[in-house]
Amino acid sequence: MGLEEKLPSGFLLTTVEQAAGWVRKSSVFPATFGLACCAIEMMTTGAGRYDLARFGMEVFRGSPRQADLMIVAGRVSQKMAPVLRQVYDQMPNPKWVISMGVCASSGGMFNNYAIVQGVDHVVPVDIYLPGCPPRPEMLMDSILKLHQKIQSSKLGVNAEEAAREAEEAALKALPTIELKGLLR
């Protein structure tokens, strides 16, 4: 992206990482991507009582070009999926996705012809937030967890290394059908 991508791995890069992470997490600009019931809870989170402004992110951007967080709030229909992907593609890097609510995460109770069974079929998801709809407190918790993730995100060669490791781990991971244990 910039000069930091060219830095050699080491003390300098990790320092820059920390500084960049701190700056990035302190001012995340979410895109308004309200779809259904969860969108109302998302608006509530931004309004008076829950006051998302405390975390430096009360400004929901109408334009994806000015946003770096997409909160997919609600069920994603087959008709909406291409639009969603286009909005995601229009967001500049670095960008994150919170899949808010069970419908966005897995299709939820709407296991049918119309709904995409999980928004991770369309875009990569950083945080899955359960609930139908999740309470504003839960949304804020997921946002704080995302802040931690942003804080510890890597840059340059470290980012490449992290991506490689993540991919290896994903390839080795058991599919859910082969997981064993109690169903709980």
């Binding site: 259904a36 609600g74 229909s77 109770m109 709407f110 049918n112 119309a114």
Partner: peptide, 30 residues
């Protein structure tokens, strides 16, 4: 319109009458 079509009416046909309320409550969520 149709970007939020959820197929609730079809889903209802595969649940009992009582479970139907769980679906219809999510139609107009306000």
């Amino acid at each position: 319109i149709g970007y939020l079509h959820t197929g609730i009416e079809k889903n209802l046909e595969f649940r009992t009458w009582t479970q139907g309320t769980t679906f219809v409550t999510r139609m107009d969520y306000l």
